[in-house]
Design a protein around this nucleic acid. Structure first.
Lengths: 245, 245
DNA sequence: CACGATTTGTTCGTATGTATT
DNA sequence: AAATACATACGAACAAATCGT
């Protein structure tokens, strides 16, 4: 019930009018809206102008555009709730499906393990850059990936880490089982970032789609830093929740 | 160091090549890159193709494009660290500048206070939809806004809330000083979303820019819900940090 | 399974508007 | 005020993905 219309770029007016029609419930979530040529005809503009309006709404997360298929009103996907227990320092995540209170199994798939002398990771860990290695993994529930992780750790401490990987496990499991290291949280930080080509390749969506970024440091029982991690999570898939009581 | 080049859309190759030149340090953060016509000439393509490549990199957060001025390599802005004390239940945020450990004053500016029978807010609060009002505020340090907040609360309990506002204060302050309500966290959740027109108007950036979304419920000392809040924070401006030791 | 129709994606060309310097 | 640089808009054509027959 907004749409000031007029004054300003044409494609913005059109985007606002389409937004209104979505808000008014003319098109339900998941439903297909008219094709680009049809909209171009309706509004009496060039198809590229329609495409700009649609691109605007897609960027805002309102539309899902699929080549060869059509343009659809984005529907609110089921969200995974990841509980953050601030009191518990042990490094063990717990993932729940949004509606049902069902805990799901989280597994990690190794993508790559190679030297990477990242200056910021070295600073976080207090390790010389030459000894740093980066482990990239794909995190998901079942076969369904919802996050990409990069861990920086001391290559000398964890030789053959990628080869020692355990099926259907997470890094915390592997370090505990294969290297006898128990992990504790040191700190975690939450921010957001735009998806790049790498994230799109593994997680789907489009370049620029919002991601939750969670980074932090985990330490062993002696308090020495074990790794610095940077995880990118599809925002329509997950939410980190802190309960205070 | 990457750039597979060829195979696929032209603009992707060009985007990859530009990305490489940025990574290689040919252009420093904050520096201007060649104009669109110049790049079109260099790559031997139409200017529209160049614009598509630049738009791709902008969406990924690599470029800052300013009309009339030029296209610049995005520079990592100073980040505010907002400390999350999970043990302490009292609803008081503390904002620190990233590098220096300086606590900054956070203030809220009232944008609007009006009835809004949001179903989800009613569900979170256990209040009838008819009694719900929404308070929109602009949150910032000094005169510099970094977040937009929407609070849903019981209109009957807080008559004239917007008029009773205190200069250079936050909602927590106003509720304590004017309504004798002390706030405690019930729960908080972190996710991410794309900026819409409203957020762009108040916070700058562009439609689709990633935002940190923090929502939750605060309760009074009797444990009764006071408000449901949904805050959107510019991701290049802020980060929520939890220290476990 | 193949093929054609449909629908979005890419690229060229051209012209004009708007913001900044 | 002029020049520069990005923004908007039109027209046309072909490519690529999807879907139903």
């Amino acid at each position: 019930v907004s749409s000031p219309a007029t004054r300003g770029p044409l494609y913005r007016d059109i985007a606002a009018k389409l937004q209104d029609r979505i808000n008014a419930g003319e098109w339900e979530p998941g439903q297909r809206i008219p094709t680009e040529p049809v909209l171009a005809e309706q509004f009496g503009v060039n198809r590229l102008t329609i495409r700009q309006a649609l691109g605007h709404l897609r960027a805002a997360g309102m539309l899902d555009i699929r080549q060869g298929s059509g343009t659809f009103v984005a529907d609110p996907a089921a969200v995974l709730e990841i509980l953050v227990d601030a009191g518990k320092r042990l490094d063990e995540g717990s993932v729940h499906a949004s509606v049902k209170s069902v805990t799901k199994d989280v597994t990690e798939l190794v993508l790559e393990y190679q030297p990477d002398p990242s200056p910021s990771a070295a600073a976080h860990l207090g390790i010389e850059r030459a000894h740093l290695a980066r482990l990239d993994t794909l995190v998901g529930t079942g076969g369904d990936p919802f996050a990409v992780s990069s861990y920086w750790l001391d290559a000398r401490r964890f030789p053959g880490l990628a080869d020692a990987w355990i099926a259907d496990a997470t890094l915390a499991t592997v370090l505990r089982e294969r290297f006898a290291v128990t992990l504790f949280y040191d700190w975690r930080a939450f921010s957001a970032a735009a998806a790049g080509d790498l994230e799109v390749m593994h997680l789907g969506g489009h370049v620029g789609a919002p991601l939750i970024v969670r980074d932090g440091v985990s330490v062993d029982d002696a308090g020495a830093p074990v790794y610095y991690v940077r995880r990118r999570i599809r925002s329509e898939r997950a939410s980190y929740v802190i309960h205070y009581r």
